[in-house]
Amino acid sequence: MLLVNKYENSYRALDLPSNWLYYSPAFSPNGRMVAFVRQDKDKKNNQQIVIVPAKWLTASKDNLSFEVDPVVTNNHNFEITNLSWSPDGSKLAYSTIDHYGAEKVWIVEKGNNPHSQMVAKGINPTWSPDGSRMIIQRSGILYMLDVKSGKEIKLGQGEQPVWCSSGYIAFVSTRQQEKVLTFMPDGSPQFTVHRLVGEIRSVYAGKNGDLLWNSKKDNWLASSTMLASPGGRSTHKEMEWLRQLELQGVREPRILMLDEVDRCHNPVLLGDENTLYYIHQGDIYASLMQVKVKEQLFGKGEK
């Protein structure tokens, strides 16, 4: 795991006990605790969710046994992922994926005798700021779930939702992009690349999601706002393809189908700081990006 200092744009690898592998870290809302998934290196099917004080992560490994009782233990062939704290820090939502690909969202309450309860099918749970609802992802579609009643409504296409304390939901939207790299003398496309691009969009849902729950939105993506996109910059693979075609003397139109995704993903939106963090995944690198966002009025009217 890497610990990033967002003020100094620096990071360091955490010196954690090496007999475990670590995944899906999540700071508690007050920043004092960290939940993460760990897996015994020698035992394949043994994943656990543990919660430790955040200061343990920066302590020396010699003073750190990490001998803590796991909140969740998985002795089956499940993958545990996507940990998400409830706003009051009393519960933890997470998802599991079994070896058949079945995805489930669970909630576990912190305490002496933690017990997980399955709440829905899906992955990537995120809590509303008031803790009454969640957004989950199922087959590339986002749903809003009422935690108490278990009722849900469909929102629309999206992945990796994050509901931030200011009421905004950030999510990843993936689409097929056709990009013309070069043109024929008559202006028609010569060398074209088809690839998947992922961009980060946002909608305002309020503190409890009533705005979306009570409205019938069939234009989900159109009503969202783009926050970050990979843009039109060329990748190394595209440039190498173009170079080879030029050297081979190919002049007629060609299409390159790229199966990799040039995408922005794993958004984290901090409402109190007006800052969006996300990963930009290119073909040969991945970068942690930080973007300042601001709320703006686009129009006025009676309704």
């Binding site: 990009k179 013309v180 790299l181 070069t182 043109f183 039109g232 910059r233 060329s234 595209e238 440039m239 173009l242 030029e246 050297l247 003397g249």
Partner: peptide, 22 residues
């Protein structure tokens, strides 16, 4: 929409004619 290929730092060599590339 403006498409095309943006080159960042690489040298761009333009050949007017096929022969020099061969």
């Amino acid at each position: 929409v403006v498409q095309g290929m943006a080159v960042k730092e690489d040298y761009v060599v333009v050949s007017v004619g096929e022969k020099p590339l061969a």
